[in-house]
Design a protein around this nucleic acid. Structure first.
Lengths: 217, 217
DNA sequence: CTCCTTTTGTTGTAATTACAACATACTTAT
DNA sequence: ATAAGTATGTTGTAATTACAACAAAAGGAG
């Protein structure tokens, strides 16, 4: 049993089911040298990649030459699965080899072929994809919601309110230090600290390090 | 055949398959009076709703009393499907009846039950959910990417660059007027107009109403 | 064409933020 | 316990933005 069988994308699938899956989706391995382009913005793709060795970066390069690194994808993690599911969606990012790497590609090519299959491996695989996609959705919409307000104060309160809902308590720890919270909310760290101080002085919250309490008074 | 059979969630399913689906997911109808709460932030849910009549609003209410209306869900559209798929995820928003309405609820209660089914209706239904979820993902990550930069200029350029990729051209129309673009990028309309003027004066772009051209040098 | 409405562009000002530089508190290793 | 390193808080300034008020342009109805 190969190590990538443990990827969440194969969760609760037997070895046999995984192997059927690999065959049916015509999984093929490919190697890339450091800095080589794997997928290019502007293209579409019917394949998604699972990293077997090394790592890749997801980056955005605009026509004026600005580069932004959006994320890293390491061992047993995958990329471009959303675009493979939606064959016609244009990739908006480049995928590039961050070091020499080995990638396993799966052809999904929209769901047309799979949707008429009534085999168990297919059902499990799609369910796994759906769970991954749904979870990504929660993360993305959460962040989108928290960086929508225009002031630092509103972003903080929006974020703290949702954590409070998740923890079912007005007192809780957050999983970020100041710098990480600032990055998450897309604001300057010192401005964040400053606003947290103000919120405390005004009696709206109370916090110490990553422990927070909401005071609705 | 009832009109809600045409919802995208039942795409390419026969009437018979849809009816099996309704039975298996124990679909039940419920009516709500205007302003009545349908789902509450902080709860979890194993059901998602399809609007049969009237409309609902998705809103956020924090403990300090601030209300934000996030979206409207009208006829044949649905809500909370992501939370129903991920049973344990806490709802971060309230769902409230915007007017008297009729809702059809489907019990998904995570994918556990469905993942071991090998019937065609289930496969089609899950594929539809996956497609919807994947598409939502593209929309959300696009927006998240465009509002991440801190200056209006960078947001504009980020947005225009992706549209250019999608249209495979440096000249294109955008589907927004100024106010809508400002809302999408989370900036003030007049500040947006102003920045567009500057970008034109500097020869970086050229635009007239919703027609844009990117000038790479 | 003319009046009216809507959209878009412009400008000045107040508010907010980023940024830099520094002070303080907290950790960790020795 | 001390020293070095890291995280957090504070402050002042320059840059950016929101906001309001208005001007100009575009579109529609009669």
């Amino acid at each position: 049993m190969k190590s990538f069988y443990q990827s969440v994308i194969f969760k609760d699938m037997t070895e046999e089911e995984i192997e059927t899956c690999l065959t049916e989706l015509r999984a093929t391995e490919k190697t890339y040298k450091k800095d080589e382009m794997i997928l290019m913005a502007g293209d579409t793709t019917e394949r998604f990649g699972l990293v077997l060795e090394g790592s890749v970066t997801i980056e955005s390069n605009d026509i004026w030459g600005n580069r932004t690194i959006l994320s890293h994808v390491g061992n047993r993690h995958f990329f471009a699965e959303t675009y493979a599911l939606l064959e016609d969606e244009t990739l908006l990012v480049d995928v590039r080899a961050n070091e020499n790497c080995r990638i396993l590609f799966f052809r999904i090519g929209s769901l047309k072929s799979l949707r008429s299959s009534n085999e168990l491996w297919a059902m499990k695989f799609i369910c796994n994809m759906l769970e991954i996609s749904a979870y990504k959705n929660v993360v993305l919409s959460g962040r989108s919601f928290h960086i929508s307000p225009r002031t630092i104060r509103e972003r903080i309160l929006s974020y703290l309110n949702t954590v409070s809902l998740q923890k079912h308590s007005t007192e809780f720890d957050i999983p970020f230090d100041r710098q990480q919270l600032a990055d998450y909310l897309n604001v300057d760290r010192s401005a964040l600290s400053n606003e947290l101080s103000k919120l405390q002085r005004e009696g709206i919250i109370s916090c110490r390090k990553n422990h927070f309490e909401l005071l609705s008074h």
